[in-house]
Design a binder for these strands. Structure first.
Lengths: 350, 350
DNA sequence: CTGTTAGCGCTTTCAG
DNA sequence: CTGAAAGCGCTAACAG
């Protein structure tokens, strides 16, 4: 039997379809006796309700759409784990789609998810996503949306993420405290809301120390077509070392940039932190066993995923209809390790 | 407008629902003129066909179920990326579920996916999955299934994975060639088909060199309740070092065991490879920048995902009805780095 | 307590 | 070429 239906049960038991339906849903209007018969039959014959039919009927699919830049990313997959945990618990399953950092792709994902009838959407916008009109439009249709990870002040919405500005500020201050003075930054596209905040935190920390090179040492790393991100990172670092005054420290703004920079610096034969110190956003559990142990800004990925999913499920179930959008800011943690330990160049006074 | 339907279009254009439906599907029985009107209207009003309805009607959901042990695993997420690429291309979306290495959980995932109406299933079985009756039963109902990554000779099915026996044999031989003689192995549960093969490869390599300690140096790492995998790894390594003749090399049978072992050995203050050499299955791109650079057996994760997805889509579309199940074995690559470089203990002849 | 009926949005005969 | 009608499997309002 390919797929048993209510009709099959009804026929076998000499009942009507609706009676069977109600019995299975434990309706008060069905006799205990009938319920038992129906349930017993359903069990022994491994009846499985057809969710497509149920979905169509009820107008809800029992699934949630998740859009991320890429699934093949340790930070992202950790957040997905958090999301999945909460959703599975609540009986939703998740449909994951990848934007691959493309806005066009992101829109296409959203369209598909909408068509598929997901009841809500969790999204970490692509790097190309500057405006949020498409999300606004989607929300207009009644689709609950929660932004996670890559949050933005420019989009009024429920959001869960970290304080990017503050985290970057702290990391830069840490480098400064360890006597580094020419701190370069590798960032992804500068227009991206969260990347912007990370730059701003970095710049403000420099300003506070009266360092005046401003944006000169920031390198946006956005691969051209036919180029890998690693190529871009290599070129950026190369260009920094070719400066008249090369940097003595490097601050990397994303998980991928951090580990790629480490690889590239190794390739190029630079010693860390002697030649250049390094600190970056990163969630790898391997930070401790890297060469050298990598100082990182750790983001609570699992927690971000969990909270975002909980918020969304709240919205779907109609709670949190408070009209008020809520932005949850989780703290990021500075994990200081060897790659940013105090430089040996002693500051000569006078 | 929450969701526009064919009826809305029909009403707006003074046509019937079926005409609109046919027009949109470019049926030959509809005039060019009508088609154009309908299509134009649909476009400008952003009509999206309701996939739940379509699914119900056609009995197919346009989605594929994927069951993995955990999504938060760099090796797994890479395979998922491969799967997603192929599926997205073919117009399927994927519903990912996690077994968390539990058979009960795995069965539950399968049930849910079946109920959801996925058209096929890609599964990397849990560590507890010794028998395959549940998969057999599911396939009996007509569900196409492809096993990937954790393949098994005990289950006649389409499968995509690597030659576990040979990879383990090679890795062990490599250690032997570098003069290591007491090689320990960390594995996960010993009953798991692929883990078994890895043990077998290891044992046969030892046997070939007439090393007689056999299984004594194998440690299955399976966390007890309330214990993390890392705790288990720590305890296992501890026990190895407490032996009268402790090992001079360690071979780890999975991605996680490899990186955890590295961490634990660091924690315990052992030098690698001076105190103990290390080689393991691992797909981390960070292998080169670890301390020391880690020798690994690299599995073509993306490719495994891709091929498995292609195979499944082939099955779904009715191709490959050859009755013959096909097992695709991809080569794993030995990436030799410092963690297994030749030991200093010179073998004295005579 | 149980059954009949209508309909979710779409596709697909089968008549016009 | 177009439309009416049936039905996918399920739920729910409404009769009996």
């Amino acid at each position: 039997m390919p797929q048993m239906t209510l009709r099959d049960i009804a026929y076998a038991l000499g009942l009507s379809v609706s009676t069977v339906s109600k019995a299975l849903r434990d309706s008060y209007e069905i006799s205990k006796d009938t319920k038992e018969r129906v349930i017993a039959y359903a069990r022994t014959n491994h009846y499985l309700p057809n969710r497509m039919a149920k979905s169509l009927k009820e107008g809800k699919s029992g699934s949630i759409g998740v859009v991320v830049c890429s699934i093949d990313n340790s930070f992202v997959s950790r957040m997905l784990d958090g999301i999945d945990g909460v959703c599975a618990q609540a009986g939703y399953d998740i449909v994951i789609m990848q934007s691959k950092e493309s806005l066009v792709q992101e829109k296409s994902c959203l369209k598909q998810l909408e068509a598929r009838g997901v009841e809500g959407i969790l999204i970490s916008p692509s790097a190309e996503t500057i405006g949020f009109e498409h999300l606004l439009a989607l929300r207009e249709t009644g689709m609950p949306i929660v932004l996670f990870d890559r949050i933005s002040e420019r989009f009024e919405s429920d959001q869960v993420g970290i304080d990017n500005y503050h985290a970057a500020f702290q990391a830069t201050e840490h480098l400064l405290a360890n006597r580094y003075r020419r701190i370069a930054m590798l960032n992804i596209g500068l227009d991206i809301p969260f990347a912007r905040l990370r730059s701003a935190g970095y710049l403000d920390a420099l300003k506070k120390k009266h360092l005046t090179y401003g944006k000169q040492l920031i390198r946006p790393c956005w691969p051209d077509t036919g180029e890998t991100l690693k190529d871009r990172v290599r070129a950026s670092i190369q260009s920094l070392f070719e400066l008249a005054e090369p940097p003595d420290a490097l601050f990397t703004a994303t998980d991928q940039l951090s580990t790629l920079s480490l690889s590239v610096l190794h390739e190029m034969g630079h010693r860390i932190p002697e030649d250049i110190a390094l600190i970056g956003f990163s969630n790898t559990e391997l930070a401790d066993v890297l060469t050298p142990p990598l100082s990182t800004i750790y983001q609570p990925a699992l927690e971000i995923g969990r909270l975002a999913a909980e918020k969304l499920i709240g919205l779907i179930s109609g709670r949190g209809l408070s009209e008020e959008y809520e932005t949850v800011i989780l703290p990021a943690q500075l994990h200081i390790r060897d790659s940013s330990r105090p430089g040996v160049k002693v500051q000569v006074n006078g």
